[in-house]
Simulated scan of single mutants.
Amino acid sequence: MIRYILKRLFGMIIVMFLVVTIVFVIVRVTPGDPAAVMLGPDATPQDIADLRSRLGLDQSILQQYVLYIGQMLQGNLGQSIFLNIPVTTALAQRAEPTFFLTMFSLILAAVIALPVGIYAAYRRGSFIDQASTVVAMTAASVPSFWLGLILIQVFAVRFGIFPVSGYGGPGASFWVRLQHLVLPAVSLGVVSSALILRFTRAAMLDVFNDDYIRTARAKGLAEGRVVLKHALKNALIPILTVLGLTAAVLVAGAVVTETVFALPGVGSLVVSAVLRRDYPVIQGALLVIAGLYVLINFAIDMLYLLVDPRVRY
């Protein structure tokens, strides 16, 4: 088991190093000069050159990369060019909306997909099974931003049940902020539930065909116990996998949804940083998102140890 954990930790380090390198190179080769964007169209070439020198952008890519790696190893993600605050501070200020949006979306997706997927597999070939498959395929093909716009038009503009956008004022209560998160969480959760539903159904169908399920039924065990204790327990590996992947995708996919609903989260911060060519913020945000992605997958790998004893050996 220790060897299994060490292998996963070593893989995490390699992945993060590759992510840091790729993001750094892509950001630097993208057209656009942050110094020119900051100074505006009336700036002279000398003004732009002076600002580039002050920001360290006149150095070679290799020099900038070595400097960035050294700062990152010390826990310093740099200083935002436009916000003029540390990147870690900017990310911390925007973390709350993204965290709650991701958590609520994942909970909603799981609440919808898991019971429906289990029941659809149990009633294979029935109307419920076929209808759930059609609905899942439809939901998977719907862009979350389009669904978000429809929800805004219906529940915010026409009926006025939920706020159109934003996250409440600086002193808003948790209940007010929760109301602002309902529509974006639904738009993300419904779309994400399609993948979870299909994987849950497929995993349960594979288990229902195994011999020990027939043996449990032959012993006269109640159907609820057969489905939940025997079948579901042995189908948890692929279900946990898709839940972890969905959580990671939601963290990265919140960028567009936060923009549609004007949520002041990490996603909107990344969009504004890309438009302004704010290199440190782009690199820091993508590094944090990639880190969360890797940590979520590592947590799922650890859950494998609890769900399936064979993994320990």
Rank of each mutant, 00 (worst) to 15 (best):
G56Q: 11
L67N: 14
V134K: 00
I61K: 09
P97Q: 04
Y119L: 12
V66N: 02
I112N: 02
L73R: 09
L101N: 03
G75R: 02
P115L: 06
L62V: 14
A120R: 06
Q130F: 13
Q71T: 10
T88M: 12
Y119R: 13
I81S: 01
Q64V: 08
Q79K: 06
V111H: 11
Y65E: 08
L114E: 01
R124Q: 13
Y122M: 11
L57W: 04
T102H: 04
G117V: 12
I61D: 13
A92L: 15
L57Y: 09
M72Y: 08
Q79R: 13
Q63C: 07
F82C: 10
Y122H: 06
I69N: 01
Y119N: 04
R123P: 07
A92H: 13
L101D: 01
Q79W: 13
L91P: 11
L73D: 00
L67C: 01
T133V: 15
Q59R: 15
F104Q: 14
A90P: 04
Q130D: 03
R94T: 12
A110Y: 04
L62C: 10
F127V: 12
M137K: 14
R123Y: 10
A90V: 10
P86D: 01
R123I: 00
A136I: 02
L91S: 03
Q74K: 15
N76P: 08
F104C: 02
Q79P: 05
S80A: 10
R54D: 14
A136N: 04
A121S: 07
V66C: 09
D58A: 14
T98M: 08
I112T: 06
A113L: 12
I107C: 13
Q63V: 12
A110G: 13
V111C: 12
Q74P: 12
Q93G: 05
